[in-house]
């Protein structure tokens, strides 16, 4: 579930970088949240405009589609930082010490490889819609009011790049724990039992 796992910190360089990156990640997640709020405002404007002034918002759907990547993807690194992406922890919840860090290291490494490939793929998706010499730099436009789409497409590789940075930090964190045999390493989300997750979930409400 999307509760926040605990991430420990100390005065080490790793931990300080973790804190610094977290600030950026929080801002990005907040922007996603504002996007969700704007979605609501946009609908209110559209419905009142249509029903009371016979003046529907031109390009309502276009604007929603432009905003969605910002809402749905931009803050992804913040969720990863707190271990918020869901997983099945029935096995990993039983593990301790070096075995646990080994599994965490491996799965995080796989995610990093995936994300680097996806930065490449999503950048190329953006790049095909972007043309420096075209009006509005646009080589792909929305269906109704012809908004250039490249800004929305650019959101994705940017978000994934920050996520990749976050994954590198977590790899270092797990790597340290694996080598040094640490019990409570800093800068990585610590595995919580289902009960702990539930407690954190309840805490938010």
């Amino acid at each position: 579930m999307a509760g926040s796992a605990s991430v420990l910190s100390d005065g080490s360089l790793l931990s300080r970088i973790d804190k610094r990156l977290e600030k950026l990640e929080w801002v990005m997640a907040f922007v996603s949240g504002i996007g969700a709020f704007m979605l609501m405002v946009l609908a209110v404007v559209s419905v009142t405009g249509r029903n009371f002034f016979n003046e529907p918002l031109p390009g309502y759907v276009d604007w929603i589609e432009m905003a969605m990547p910002l809402i749905a993807i931009f803050g992804i690194a913040y969720v990863q930082r707190s271990g918020g992406h869901i997983r099945m922890d029935i096995l990993i919840g039983q593990l301790k010490g070096r075995v646990l860090w080994f599994f965490e290291f491996m799965t995080t490494f796989f995610i990093l490889v995936l994300m680097i490939l996806l930065v490449w793929g999503t950048w190329s998706h953006f790049d095909r819609s972007f043309d420096f010499s075209a009006p509005n730099w646009s080589r792909d436009s929305s269906i109704d009011i012809g908004l250039p789409i490249w800004p929305a497409k650019l959101v994705v590789p940017v978000a994934f790049s920050v996520l990749s940075l976050r994954l590198v930090l977590q790899l270092i964190g797990y790597g340290r724990a694996l080598v040094l045999g640490l019990d409570r390493p800093v800068a990585v989300p610590l595995v919580q039992s289902a009960a702990e997750i539930a407690a954190a979930e309840a805490e938010q409400i």
Partner: peptide, 19 residues
């Protein structure tokens, strides 16, 4: 088509005039 994902495709001009 441009990626080479598939060999043939159909599209409509109005979906993305800038393309």
């Amino acid at each position: 088509i441009s990626i080479g994902a598939f060999e043939m495709a159909q599209f409509c001009a109005g979906y993305h005039a800038d393309k």
